[in-house]
Design a binder for these strands. Structure first.
Lengths: 205, 205
DNA sequence: GCCAACATACCAACCAGTTGGTATGTTGGC
DNA sequence: GCCAACATACCAACTGGTTGGTATGTTGGC
């Protein structure tokens, strides 16, 4: 669990995120990975026993890298849980910048490709998504408690639905080459949640 | 545009759909494809000049195979456009059966992998999605015309959002190994559209 | 007898993974 | 405080199998 030697292993994991998000897992070769990371293949197989082990480590690393970005965000201090959820979606929209490989989800890309061939990578990638979704559950639970809509879905289901929309948005964005279509679906998600938990009024400033 | 020799070419395209939906495009090899189709590699390269050409043909074939399934469905005859949209989602949910490779979307799988490496496959796969989405636009347009909600999104945007949710649902289903999580997101989509275009009452039977 | 539709045989490049090695610590007995 | 024994981190070169693609048949209908 301890990785006392950050540089080479981290360089390989960073290269893996970039390569897999751009070209996918299958099309990512260890040679390209090492070239991008600036190390040799011997170094790779010193740190990872196989390509599959790298896939698992990349999914875990993806969680480790992205989680603090959301955990440290200021929106958690908003008093209204519905406002916290909207602020989360605002943050997700703000992250839709740059090239597609820079904002798309590594875990979703992995799931798409390895679901039938590697149960271990599948489990690690799915865990990355559900672990992130679970950070939204308290806010949804609070919104339900404060403003229970009729036939209310569970907090867990709502949190996962947000991830579903985001994953789908990334795919459509890959079709157009830009994030506009993803923003569009995020607006639909916002509208859904606003209809489900109507905000009493627009807070000013 | 004319394919006067159905059997071998069709066998290869059917094999391509199955292989790509299971293992993805990159992990699909021409040798495996030919073995599954029961033909030799010479036959493959007689019909497709490259693997990329097969990818493009597979996306087009995917449209050709799936379009009639929706076009021939009975839900188009329902009088209420909102009921037609709900019936479309019911049909999509009914299709969530069997193995994941049997209900997931070829176009989404292709987009995920080739968006950065093959503009031609990307365009063909995206066209398959948008062409299908366009078949929903008349119903959304009618729903908007009959029941314009405040700050109404466009029919085209709503039709694409349905595809976004479906694509995301397929990815999450690949994480769990079954369709339950996809059905959950379809229910959220139904709830969104119901809130947006509230049905006056439950029609009986 | 010609051509589309296949089949067979083959290739150069590439792939994940291995091997044998070096350089640089680290540790524990004395 | 020194050194043998060991561990870690990394590298260059290689291997056996696979890959997309090609070159060269063969065959059957018109």
């Amino acid at each position: 669990m301890s990785h006392p030697h950050p540089p080479t292993r981290t360089k390989l994991l960073d290269a893996a995120l970039a390569e897999i998000r751009t070209n996918g897992y299958s099309a990512t070769t260890i040679d390209h990975l090492c070239a991008r990371a600036g190390v040799t293949k011997g170094a790779f197989f010193h740190h990872f026993k196989s390509k599959e082990a790298l896939g698992i480590a990349a999914a875990t690393y993806w969680s480790d890298v992205t989680s603090p970005m959301f955990a440290q965000s200021a929106y958690h201090s908003l008093p209204d849980p519905r406002a916290r959820i909207m602020a989360y979606l605002d943050l997700r929209e703000a992250l839709l910048a740059g090239e597609i490989a820079e904002f798309s989800c590594l875990a979703g890309t992995l799931l798409q490709e390895v679901h039938a061939s590697s149960p271990t990578i599948t489990a690690a990638a799915y865990a990355a998504i559900t672990t992130h979704a679970e950070t939204l559950e308290p806010d949804f639970a609070a919104a339900i408690a404060e403003h229970l809509p009729p036939d209310c879905p569970t907090a867990a289901s709502l949190a996962l639905h947000c991830q579903t929309v985001l994953q789908g948005a990334f795919i459509l964005a890959k079709g157009t080459g830009n994030a506009a279509i993803a923003q569009d679906s995020l607006n639909h998600l916002r509208r859904y949640l606003t209809l489900l938990f109507p905000l009493p009024e627009e807070p000013k400033s």
